[in-house]
Amino acid sequence: MSDYNFAYLDEPTKKMIRRAILKGLAVPGYQVPFASREMPMPYGWGTGGVQVTAACLTPEDTLKVIDQGADDTTNAVSIRSFFAKVAGVATTTRTREASLIQTRHRIPETPLRSDQILVYQVPIPEPLRFLEPRETETRRMHALEEYGLMHVKLYEDIARHGAIATSYAYPALVNGRHVFDPSPIPRFDNPKLESPAIQLFGAGREQRIYALPPFTRVQSLDFEDHPFEASKADGACALCGATQTYLDEIVADDQGTRRFQCSDTDYCMERRA
């Protein structure tokens, strides 16, 4: 512990990241560039989220880390033990007990509170990237609110699949101004983006931080005749019987038997307890 500064990053770096976070909170949905640091893990493992977490942690915090809703996957376990080691903070798997939750690809089923912070790991922060490869052009489009292209993508979805087939990283309009990529959370989670908790998004490789202050208006983009739908698999959790949660489909045996299970392991366990 004494070999590291609290929470791994040095204080000037944390200050720089906090400034980016504050700017992000001041302009909801705007991607703030920041000088992302090398972290002791590969890109794609949550280097952006880890830096945001490091900048937000205090010694009194209780940390929870989830990956696709689960507390026990490699990514979640290693990030949790990383901060237990370099910050000495308490860790938990219970959503209720955590003051800071770092997540990859899910929002917990348990409603968040105003004293909690949710940190997302973001691979590609730019929602327009696959339509417009030039960074100079996408920045200009954000600056001038030219988001017609985003609807072209949804149009293509309907033309090809008969319905909006974008099922994760579903673009949304934040505070009536910026279109943003809510990281690859399932679109089932999009309505939960309007939350009492502070939500921070960190993209390490792309060097961007953006944020949603509590209760910010988040409208998922859609067409009048093809409205947004927070879809999920039609089924019930095989463990806890929940039908209102986001479900993972699991192949159970070599015969190809399939079953569903809550993707949020903590929520599922709490229901069974």
Partner: peptide
């Protein structure tokens, strides 16, 4: 982008939201 998407882009940029 499909032909339809190409023709529709300017409409959507102008705020058309009915598929």
């Amino acid at each position: 982008v499909s032909a339809g998407g190409n023709v529709g882009e300017r409409l959507m940029a102008g705020g058309a939201r009915h598929y």
